[in-house]
Design a binder for these strands. Structure first.
Lengths: 225, 225
DNA sequence: ACTCCGTAGACTGTATCCAATAGCCAGAAC
DNA sequence: GTTCTGGCTATTGGATACAGTCTACGGAGT
């Protein structure tokens, strides 16, 4: 018990690196989402280990998790390959996302307090500013943050965990085409905030469903690379 | 290319054990779901390894996956503990399950062919027979098989994967109280089949939602152990 | 009664070693 | 010339050993 009157925030909270496998996981995920490792590419444990400056063990464990999370395909006795998304899979993913996000919006509308609403508005402003700056990376990130906050307001940890996984992959597929849907997306976010602020679960669901379905359609209409 | 006229089914398909970590994962999951390993119990890698007759390596990887799937809690530098479900978490899980299953029912109604309907009826008969026999284990399994088949008819692999994880945990929480909801559950299954056979997505959704909400309520009304 | 270590138990990460397997290619058989 | 076989290689899968570090527990001292 800190008997001395140390202010809580003053503790430097000395940086705990966390398990190495986690950091390797994040590092590889970063490389995949940024397209530094391209879909279909063969990942060799020993190469990755050497490149990251760790032993094979943490790399193996990270690859296993990436496999179960759908980021890489682990072919037995041959190695790991960066997952290649198919048209059908992307569509299914976006469908599920619509489902999860719509439910989250409904729950958020029922649970949200004034503080949460304020957070959403702040995030919305940040997103709109990013759209003005035309930086795709920042826009996508702000969008993810906004949706994550809505999910947080829903107060369902299980739902949030599923959505986290799904959203991250959606973000991967979607980033290349995010530019198209700039300003319109944030107008819809405003509508969503209004519905949540009114505590209107039905409307929040409808708005969110409409919003994510827009995203889904704009994915299918994307320019082929 | 099998030029000889070997019948496809004749190949014994010699048993491939598959990766050891998978088998360890399944073995541990079996031990957890059957309550041989009780919630809160401390799992020591070396003990498990010795007990299963493998080295620590596969055990570690299996524990990691069990951790990400929510079956065990991995406390740093201390070890793995069988997850202890809380009231709130069970409720959230059942809520999410309702969401996923309802969507699956809708999609199944839109996609199902005659063959799928027949499968559902067969599974339903099997379940009803099990209820008659009053064997909780068999009933729960038949129930899982039925829901899994509905999910298969929905034809959304991503949705199915999420539901598989959620359902397995729901099953864990729910098994102790499954006895209460015997016959009624299968009557509702019949209704669901009818809705799917009619291709009525709205009704299928409603029936499934009602069905899983029944389950949720009966969970909360369960006798405390 | 409270605090302060000391120690044991357990995980984390590293380094090797060996076995099994998929893919590939060269070469023999027809 | 085509096909099949056999071996070679790269890589993973699994086992084992070992050092470092963290946690919790308990006993000694105040």
């Amino acid at each position: 018990m800190l008997s001395a009157g140390l202010p809580e925030g003053a503790m430097p909270k000395l940086e705990r690196p966390g398990p190495l496998r986690e950091r390797v996981y994040e590092a590889l995920l970063e490389l995949i989402t940024t397209r530094a490792l391209r879909p279909g590419q063969h990942l060799v444990e020993s190469e990755l280990a050497q490149h990251l400056g760790v032993s094979r063990q943490p790399v193996r464990e990270a690859l296993q998790r990436l496999n179960t999370d759908g980021w890489v395909d682990l072919r037995p006795a041959q190695g790991a390959f960066v997952h290649e998304p198919t048209e059908e899979e992307a569509d299914q993913l976006l469908t599920v996302r619509t489902l999860l996000e719509a439910e989250a919006a409904r729950l958020a509308a029922l649970n949200a307090k004034a503080e949460g609403i304020a957070d959403l508005e702040a995030l919305c402003r940040r997103g709109e500013a990013a759209v003005g700056g035309d930086e795709v990376e920042t826009v996508v990130e702000a969008n993810a943050a906004f949706h994550a906050r809505v999910m947080g307001l829903a107060g369902n940890a299980v739902l949030a965990e599923l959505a986290r996984q799904v959203d991250r992959r959606v973000r991967w597929y979607y980033t290349p085409v995010a530019r198209q849907r700039g300003a319109q997306s944030w107008i819809e976010h405003r509508e969503l905030i209004a519905a949540i602020a009114d505590g209107d679960g039905e409307r929040a669901t409808a708005v969110m469903r409409e919003h994510t379905e827009h995203t889904r359609r704009s994915y299918h209409e994307r320019p082929r690379s």
